[in-house]
């Protein structure tokens, strides 16, 4: 079967350390969530994933921007780049890099959930004709993502894959499985347009969005429950998954 070929230790060089995984849920309210789904070239299919994960065919990059009005860490905005993949039988998004505006949220996402996240400026403006996300780090643009012509969908038509981060846990380097429960009030499909994209700022210079597939924008609530499972990054999920003791 086709597997990721990245060296986990090499990937781990830039990944955070999590002293202990959270035992409580985090509830994020008043959330606007913009997602864009892009195909990537085959050359970036296996090298960006650890061997415990299977790439999709075609390789796919998902950009997500959350603007969160209320959370345990106050208002914040998060932009993340995710490579779509499979862990065992399940669809997942492997986070390569993220930018967050809101220092308490940055700290929590990095130190408690293993997001490879750094401080920056993340703006998400929503209009009736378009949605625009702007992401910068150190005053340098990371990407600008526009979603054009919102077209109403039923909230049930949207599907978000769970998240995998890679972090140093006390037991070693692990994929951390984060399973946000998204409850939507409103959903629209948009046509994505990416204006400028700096993959290095998102942790992986080989990320290369090519064919735009879809975009969506939604409002609602996200609950991040306690992490239940982690996985050794060099092993398939069937053998490498470890239950997190609660």
């Amino acid at each position: 079967m086709i597997l990721g070929s990245a060296d986990p230790e090499e990937l781990g060089c830039t990944r955070p350390t999590v002293a202990s995984l959270p035992r409580q849920s985090f509830v994020l309210d008043d959330v606007v969530l913009l997602q864009a789904f892009y195909e990537m070239p085959r050359t970036a299919r296996e090298p960006v994933l650890p061997p415990g994960l299977h790439p999709t065919n075609p390789a796919a990059l998902v950009l997500q921007v959350w603007r969160c009005g209320d959370s345990p860490w106050g208002p914040f905005a998060l932009a993340q780049a995710r490579v779509q993949c499979r862990s065992g039988l399940r669809a997942r998004g492997f986070v390569t890099g993220a930018v967050c505006e809101g220092s308490d949220a940055t700290r929590a996402l990095r130190d408690e959930l293993g997001f490879p996240v750094r401080d920056g400026r993340v703006e998400l403006q929503r209009g009736y004709d378009r949605v625009l996300a702007t992401v910068e780090v150190d005053d340098r643009p990371v990407f600008e993502l526009e979603g054009e012509d919102p077209d109403p969908l039923s909230p049930g038509d949207l599907q978000y894959s769970s998240t995998l981060t890679l972090a140093h846990l006390p037991a070693g380097l692990r994929l951390v499985q984060i399973e946000p429960q998204v409850t939507l009030e409103r959903a629209e499909r948009v046509r994505p347009r990416l204006l400028g994209f700096d993959p290095s700022a998102l942790g992986e210079p080989r990320l290369e969005p090519t064919t735009p597939v879809s975009g969506s924008v939604a409002t609602g609530r996200i609950e991040i429950p306690p992490v239940r499972f982690v996985c050794r990054p060099a092993e398939l999920a069937f053998t490498g998954t470890e239950k997190v003791e609660g």
């Binding site: 086709i2 999709t56 075609p58």
Partner: peptide, 20 residues
């Protein structure tokens, strides 16, 4: 089953009422 689970289903990539 594993090969089947690795398919990139339409709805995962493209939200639509046509693939429920």
């Amino acid at each position: 089953g594993l090969a089947n689970a690795h398919l990139l289903w339409t709805r995962e990539a493209y939200p639509t009422r046509a693939y429920q």
